[in-house]
């Protein structure tokens, strides 16, 4: 027999949204930093040279590694700060989605070549 259970049992406090908002904003920020680094590496020889972490893959290794590091670091910090709080989810989610859309646009070569 299937065992049904409530979404929020009556004896548990409702979940605050801080934990999710931290994950959402950091994902947007991580994507945006990755896109930004890709443009910077295209336009600066110094950045390009310093982002070659693994020679066979070239600058892509540094762009993605730093992007992932920024994403996880931001996530950790925001989660630590917001875990038990209720945050303005609408505003922060809008910022995260804007960063995500900008990232998709900025990585499109005809756009990234404008910089």
């Amino acid at each position: 027999m299937k065992r049904a259970y409530n979404v929020s049992p009556p004896d548990t406090p409702p979940l605050t949204n801080g934990c999710a908002v931290a994950a959402i904003l950091s994902a947007g920020a991580g994507c945006f930093v990755l896109a930004l680094l890709a443009i910077l590496a295209d336009n600066s020889a110094l950045v390009r040279r310093s982002l070659v972490f693994y020679k066979p893959t070239g600058v892509l290794s540094g762009v993605t590694t730093v992007g992932i590091f920024v994403w996880l670091f931001t996530w950790g910090i925001l989660d630590w700060r917001w875990r038990k709080k209720t945050v303005a989810a609408g505003r922060v989610s809008a910022i995260a989605l804007t960063l995500l859309v900008l990232s998709l646009i900025l990585t499109f070569p005809p756009v990234s070549d404008l910089f």
Binding site: A27, C31, W71, L100, L104, F108
Partner: peptide, 9 residues
């Protein structure tokens, strides 16, 4: 570059 947005998301 864009492929990396998939695992992050």
């Amino acid at each position: 570059h864009v492929a990396w947005f998939a695992p992050i998301s």
